[in-house]
Design a protein around this nucleic acid. Structure first.
Lengths: 223, 223
DNA sequence: ATAAAATTGTACTGGCTGGTTAATTGCGTC
DNA sequence: GACGCAATTAACCAGCCAGTACAATTTTAT
């Protein structure tokens, strides 16, 4: 990866040319534009205009629009991944760990609307570009195994019911967290903004936790 | 609405020109194309080609692309509305009524993927076109009041807990049902197709019912 | 029958937009 | 200080595509 020249950080500092920074800049802008307008809706000229560089550079580094989109999608995933390891569930009892996981997921989705929009757009495209990315798949397996661990602990301890499936539970948690961001516009257009105020969101989150926990809990357990 | 002329059905029968059928045809095709490709991705020429009529007619009846999209969105809503009144919950005990409602919603979403895609696309557009439609709002209030009725009955009867909010519960049911269709491509790209087989879907639906009921149930009730 | 209105076909256009050609500058190396 | 390569710039192009001009034809009203 890194050329073992004297190209440490010092030597790159005074450069006028800075290819990596240019590419990062392009990706940053591209992600926002694609997230906002979709693949066909985004304009290369607009992306270029909001960049510190030019349209020609976009084609120089990324080839064509679709490749840029694919890279922007990966960048979006990479960006949310960074935020995810801030969650520490070690040492918590299973039910608290699960509650905290749901809360975290809910908040984390809410904090990354551009990522959500990218995923929405990707779903519109039948995940055609996601399928081709090897980089992305690895991230999500961690989520499943983490959940599997919590479930196993809870079952061993008797407070979770048997027969819980980690992937299905992940699906459920994702559904509530994702929908809350993805469908906010239509939902609030149809039913008013009540659910998307601060108080409404707190309620929704608590309700999501409640529903997941109520489902997972072993009824035989608490007398 | 209906002009009280001799324009009953007989007089329209021998027509060569049939404006209403032409418009319906255009809307049908437009809905599919917009659902598949989005607003900016859809091509008027493609829509015209798949119609029995010509591009000129699209502009004659609908003015421009955005208006056609707005009308197609309304048509999508109108189409799903038709399927919704097939659900009869009268006479069922509250918990069974709620279970049946969740099952129905889940299935109904799954049976109308094009509608789901239109709503996804509309969310990408921040519901800009949905907001302008007076026609659509009315439909969804029925869903809330139906749910409110079930909740009220259940609470009166003691089997549902107090403090349940119909809109929030609708949000939750919608989230699970919607996400199941909207995010199928990315989810199955990331986690494999297991959840979207016949058996997987049956499980997911049962799990959704379970989670909603577990949340609504009054724990004090069943000894 | 006849005029007026509604509907339809053909051919076209103009601006947008993804992508390119070619010339120029910066940078490390010998 | 010239050579080679990477990075950058500016001007340009060709095809696409929403939307139109105009005329022809069909239907309805009288």
């Amino acid at each position: 990866m890194d050329k073992p020249l004297k190209k440490s950080r010092k030597s790159t500092q005074g450069w006028k040319q800075n290819p990596q920074a240019v590419q990062r800049d392009i990706l940053r802008v591209a992600m926002r534009e694609f997230a906002e307008n979709g693949l066909s809706g985004a304009r290369i000229d607009d992306i270029a205009a909001k960049t510190a560089t030019s349209k020609r550079m976009i084609y120089y580094y990324f080839g064509d629009k679709e490749s840029l989109y694919a890279r922007a999608l990966e960048a979006a995933y990479a960006k949310v991944r960074d935020g995810e390891d801030k969650l520490d569930l070690a040492g918590l009892p299973p039910d608290e760990a699960l509650a905290k996981l749901v809360e975290f997921t809910f908040d984390h989705h809410r904090a990354n609307p551009d990522f959500i929009r990218m995923v929405m757009i990707e779903n519109i495209h039948h995940a055609a570009y996601l399928k081709q990315s090897k980089m992305i798949r690895s991230l999500n397996e961690a989520a499943i195994s983490q959940l599997a661990g919590i479930i196993a602990r809870g079952q061993a301890q008797g407070c979770f019911r048997p027969g819980l499936d980690p992937m299905m539970m992940h699906w459920q948690i994702s559904a509530l967290s994702f929908f809350n961001v993805s469908n906010k516009p239509t939902f609030s257009a149809l039913f008013g903004p009540a659910l998307f105020t601060r108080a409404g969101q707190d309620d929704l989150r608590a309700q999501a936790v409640e529903a997941i926990l109520a489902y997972a809990r072993n009824l035989e357990d608490t007398p």
